[in-house]
Amino acid sequence: MTTILITGGHSGIGLAASRKLAAQKVDLVLAGRSPDRMREVADELRSSYGTSVRTVALELSSLESVRAAAATIESMLASGELTSLDAIVCNAGGRFDGAISFSPEGYETTFATNYLGHFLLVEQLLPKLSRNGRVVYTASGTHDPDSMDGKMVGAAVEPDAFALAEVGKNGDAALSAGKRYSSSKLCAVMYVYELDRRLRKAGSAVSAIAFDPGSIPETGFLRGMPAPMRRLSTTSAMKWVSQRLGVTTSDVAFSGASLAALATENGYVDASGTYFQAHEGTLTAVRSAKVSYDLRRAAKLWEDTEELVGLRIRGEATQPR
């Protein structure tokens, strides 16, 4: 039986993906920071599809919570409660408007949630993935500063892990919420590519895939914005304007189904290191931002991230997997 761990699988496109996977009789582990909502969704999926659904508490902005969640899943595997772990779907994330905030470890919340937490979760659980397992990361077209998606949200800045983790600290100038979001997603795309390169070098059959679900205001992405802006963003008129401007648009159902497909379908078994985009009913492999293919930047981002999440000591050589 296939078992998939999905973060944020209880809302938005994550919920749409969970329903699609459950309908295919895939066993699920829902991980997130809303235990009551996860229990409701787990009960719904069990009742509707007869599949096995477990829930694990996970606050991605907290590295301690990530380690605890990974340990819980490892324990489930060791006890036989989970028979396998076949995919990790890194779907949860958010944009944090308003005053800048920091994680328990002192890292900027957007960067900690959208990038650091998933990096640590995958690195902790990668040895437990099945031989042909997959890591699928929900990224965003906003990561590309040359795209309309990126320009409208706020162009991503240099993918410097230390700088992004500390941005706005001690009274220093803070990036806008949009720039913090797009930059965190750029780092996510670069992580997927670097993970793919390292897996291939190690002779692993595990795949790493990046996915842009498109702009979907209904998911609550703009929940930190004023109410009038949120209402406007979900109107057909606003969608029409976005399409004319060249924004990548989609809907919850299609993007959720696309996320599920990338995690399970045989057609994507050789898609490691690829960036897929959902746009108006079509899922296509496309090019990501130019900077995302920079090997030097990616290697440095990886090493700095290992240090930030406590997997590496400054100056220590990276150990082979």
Rank of each mutant, 00 (worst) to 15 (best):
K201V: 13
L295C: 11
S255P: 10
V26I: 15
R19V: 06
L222P: 00
A278G: 11
L308V: 01
P159M: 03
T274Y: 10
L63P: 05
P228R: 01
P226Q: 03
F119R: 04
V269P: 02
G150S: 11
R296V: 15
T305V: 04
E40L: 13
T72K: 10
V241A: 14
K290M: 05
R134K: 13
V189D: 09
T72W: 00
V269S: 15
E158P: 11
C90H: 02
L126K: 13
D149V: 05
G133A: 06
N170A: 12
M225Q: 14
T51K: 04
A156I: 06
R287S: 15
K151E: 14
K151I: 13
V135I: 15
A173T: 11
V167L: 04
R33V: 14
A16F: 00
V309N: 00
K185V: 06
V286R: 15
V192A: 08
T318H: 10
L85W: 11
K25S: 14
G98E: 10
G315M: 04
I73D: 06
R46S: 09
G14V: 14
S103F: 08
A112T: 09
G281N: 13
P226D: 05
F102K: 11
V29D: 01
G141T: 05
M190P: 07
G281M: 12
E316Y: 04
T282W: 12
S215N: 14
P145Y: 06
V252T: 15
D149I: 10
A99S: 14
L283H: 11
L186I: 06
R200C: 04
R37I: 12
Y181I: 03
L5V: 14
T2C: 04
T83M: 05
P228C: 01
K185I: 10
T110G: 00
L295E: 13
A69C: 06
M148C: 07
K179H: 01
L125D: 06
R296Q: 14
A16I: 05
L126V: 11
R67L: 00
E44I: 07
D196N: 15
M225T: 10
C187E: 11
I13Q: 01
A87H: 06
G178P: 00
R314S: 10
P228E: 05
E303P: 04
L232K: 13
A139W: 01
